[in-house]
Amino acid sequence: MTGALETMGLGKQYGDLWALRDCTLTVPSGRVAALVGPNGAGKSTLLQLASGLNYPSAGVVRVFGLSPRQDPGLVLPRIGFLSQDRPLYRGFTVAEMLTMGKKLNPRWDDALARRRLQHLGIPLKRKAGKLSGGQQSQLALVMALAKRPEFLLLDEPVATFDPLARREFLSMLLEATVEDGLTVLLSSHIINDLERMCDYIIILSAARLTLVGDISEVLDRHKLLISVRRDTDGLEHLHNVVQVTHTERQTTVLARTNGHIWDPSWEVHDVSLEDIVLAYLGQPQRDVPTVTMDRADEEVLR
């Protein structure tokens, strides 16, 4: 299994500040991967490094085994990228934007682009700069999709969409993953819907990777343990404790388990993905071991 995206010790430094550091991960092909984390956690930086817009200060980034900076001619036709600021040539008409796509991309699917735009009710003769914010995002996305990429990198794709547009866009995206075996990496602030559309998660916090893995595996292994107030030494011996809260009477632990919890004094509960993500984001700024939870036996779609 080759990953659509592989990084090893990847880092990007601006002056004294690391925007991303020590990032080692794999996004297997055919996955819809969510990239979550607060603003400034390094999400955009990772996406830019993968698209070749930016170059690493440390480590290695590979897309389909190729370097986006050294072999841009081989990588660029295979990826689609949506930048957070949705750049469009404001003076171009929508039709001219499509002409640009056609002229610049050998795999351009003009019929797909026109069909999508018609469906969205975006007139071809309108200037891109005159479209509403949501329509501009839609157009930028259609441009990225009509490239017919194998790997789509989206920075906050649904941030400016209303719920209906959001649902429509996700349907279109997920349909493309079934049809073309497309791999998707999308960053998002919105966690509550991730479980539905994504099957892989990458959590970044303060420029570092805190969790990578298959979502169902992540859900299976994370448990909320509740007990009368006690220390967690015994637990930490066998499992990874992510977050501990003590009240006067009670101890609550979010643990990444490495097997069954045999100690009957712990009351074991399932945790939602949202709670897991929040726990990893809320972690204190100590060195967090990066956990790669990649289910080996999980078959890739198709």
Partner: peptide, 18 residues
């Protein structure tokens, strides 16, 4: 089909497959 369900629900195809 998986594609129909995915398009209908905006759900991850691996979920349907599973």
């Amino acid at each position: 089909t998986i594609k129909q369900i995915v398009a209908e629900l905006a759900i991850n195809p691996n979920t349907v497959l599973k």
